[in-house]
Amino acid sequence: MTKSELITRLAERHPHLVATDAELAVKAIIDAMVDSLVAGERIEIRGFGSFSLNYRPPRVGRNPKTGEKVQVAGKHVPHFKAGKELRDRVDSKP
């Protein structure tokens, strides 16, 4: 499912919500989630999961082509932990 399919499904399943609102809403939700993580803030959605940043400390890496050692700076990477409801539903055996 892509972002545009998500918009279509929302509009179809919730016909009393205006279709153009579904598109604006999806974009607003995603923008807010991006902004939060960029600001270093957590996202906690009950029943879905949480997003936070994990810190990767600096390390000495290697250029795989030349074998040369290079210093890789520390960085933050987005991390997702699925919530209980999502975990259970995804793993429910038919």
Binding site: L6, R13, H14, A22, A25, G47, F48
Partner: peptide, 8 residues
């Protein structure tokens, strides 16, 4: 809408 987004 927020609930529906995550439910989809």
């Amino acid at each position: 809408m927020v609930e529906a987004f995550f439910e989809e």
